[in-house]
Simulated scan of single mutants.
Amino acid sequence: MHNITSIGRSCSIMQCLKSAIFKENPVKNERFLLTGLHACGDLSATMVKLFAECHEVTAVVSVACCYMKITTDLDQPQMGRMNNQEDSYRYPLSEFVQKLPDHCLPYKSREASCHALEDYKLRLEENTNHLKMHCYRAVLESMIRESYPEIIRPPVQTVKKAYDLPFLEYVKLAFVKLNLELPNEISDSSRFESMLSRWQQVVTYYTISVMVASVVEMIILLDRMLFLEENNFECELSATFEPTLSPRCFSITAHK
């Protein structure tokens, strides 16, 4: 099978998958099972579409992840059905959800759906210093937006054992990883102390977002189920393994 992990656009993924099936396997009447364990972003939805469109693919088992990387009609409002570009986005897939008012899922909602509810529950019970990292990150992003307003979603990399570091040390390491110049205002730590003292409020907000994570995940997965049912395929959604092993444990299976 071709390596398709570096292909960003959904249509390229679809073309690559079809090429792998038809060109590398020209045997007539050959049947395929399409599987994906934690297939990232658009790839999982593309597998579902390929199953529906490709006669040779007679079954699919898909365990998705990274919902925030899904291309949506909110991201490309002028594309999709208007220009007959069926592969321009991967949510929503079903006609039922497309017709619902306010069906859009913004990036923040999709990002929240990737949180690990079970793991975070343990962190809350243990009440460790790890919890303060949410406030560290929130204040850091406030600093970045203030100094670099053109950066909408800063790709902040993990700072090892950041919860054991003084906040300003954490900020310096984060800016180095982002390859950004440190703002002069950082020397005045008093302006950040009031925000850091509200870390429990940040934890509360984060906890609420984690609580609704599974709801958003189910919306995305049920949309794919509805798409399959609209195309007259039998399908099933089930928890394949324990969420403590991986929070992305739900699989969609379908067959012809």
Results as ranks from 00 to 15, higher is better:
83 N>K: 15
87 D>C: 09
81 R>F: 08
162 A>P: 01
210 V>D: 05
199 W>T: 03
52 A>C: 10
18 K>F: 00
238 S>F: 15
57 V>R: 01
20 A>D: 06
197 S>N: 15
31 R>P: 04
51 F>C: 00
207 T>G: 05
188 D>V: 10
76 Q>S: 07
55 H>L: 00
247 P>S: 12
112 A>G: 03
252 I>D: 05
188 D>I: 12
78 Q>F: 11
218 M>S: 14
83 N>V: 13
183 P>D: 05
187 S>K: 09
179 N>Q: 15
211 M>L: 12
114 C>T: 13
210 V>Y: 09
230 E>T: 02
76 Q>K: 15
54 C>R: 04
153 R>T: 14
151 I>G: 06
53 E>S: 13
199 W>D: 02
170 Y>I: 01
173 L>N: 05
241 F>A: 01
167 F>I: 02
42 D>H: 12
218 M>L: 15
186 I>Y: 09
133 M>H: 01
122 L>Q: 13
74 L>D: 06
151 I>N: 08
245 L>W: 05
234 E>C: 02
255 H>I: 11
15 Q>P: 00
64 A>H: 09
151 I>E: 04
198 R>Y: 12
9 R>W: 06
12 S>W: 08
175 F>E: 03
100 L>D: 01
171 V>E: 01
1 M>W: 04
168 L>W: 03
240 T>H: 09
255 H>C: 10
170 Y>A: 01
158 T>K: 06
25 N>R: 06
170 Y>L: 03
227 F>Q: 03
183 P>N: 09
205 Y>E: 02
17 L>K: 02
123 R>V: 00
130 H>W: 03
14 M>H: 11
149 P>F: 07
163 Y>R: 02
238 S>M: 11
57 V>N: 00
215 V>W: 14
219 I>G: 01
149 P>Y: 03
89 Y>R: 14
24 E>H: 06
203 V>N: 08
185 E>I: 12
223 D>N: 05
147 S>H: 12
194 S>L: 14
41 G>Q: 11
77 P>G: 03
248 R>F: 13
123 R>W: 06
152 I>R: 15
14 M>I: 13
